[in-house]
Simulated scan of single mutants.
Amino acid sequence: MEQVPEPRFTLVKVSETDWAIHDLHHPESDHRRVVCRIYDDAPTDVEVIWMRDLPLALRYPNVHEVLEAVERFQDASRATRPIPIPHRPPPTRRRDRR
């Protein structure tokens, strides 16, 4: 049976209109724990203030889409094994024939 990994990010309700996403890899006292603040700005979307330098949007339809975007970004940014490059000898130098 395959184990489901612990979630890294969680959505925390701060007030009736404000949310935050926390990175559970950092302790509560660490400033890096807060990934972003989310404000219920309009009836159709939410505004995001990023606390980290992430290349993600500033507006989303709802808070759950923000959490999904952070999780997708984290999965995509994981390092992969290097791609092997075939080794070939350098090209031979041709003499100019004039």
Rank of each mutant, 00 (worst) to 15 (best):
A57T: 03
R59Q: 14
V66K: 03
I49E: 00
L56S: 07
P91H: 09
A76I: 08
R32D: 15
I21C: 00
A69H: 00
D23M: 00
D96F: 06
I21K: 05
C36H: 01
V70F: 10
L67M: 05
I85R: 10
P82W: 05
A69K: 03
L67I: 08
S29N: 11
D40H: 07
H26Y: 15
P90Q: 14
P84E: 13
C36A: 08
A42L: 05
P86M: 10
R33Q: 15
H22C: 10
N62A: 02
M51A: 11
P7I: 11
H22P: 06
E68R: 09
P90I: 04
H31V: 06
H25N: 13
R97V: 11
I38A: 03
V48A: 00
D30R: 01
P61D: 11
W50I: 03
H25F: 08
I21V: 15
C36N: 04
I83F: 12
S29W: 09
L54G: 03
H31Y: 06
H25M: 12
V35D: 00
M51V: 06
D41E: 06
V35Y: 03
V48I: 02
W50F: 00
R81G: 07
P55T: 11
D40E: 14
I49D: 02
V4F: 13
A57E: 09
P27C: 11
E47L: 10
D18M: 08
I49F: 04
P82M: 07
P27I: 10
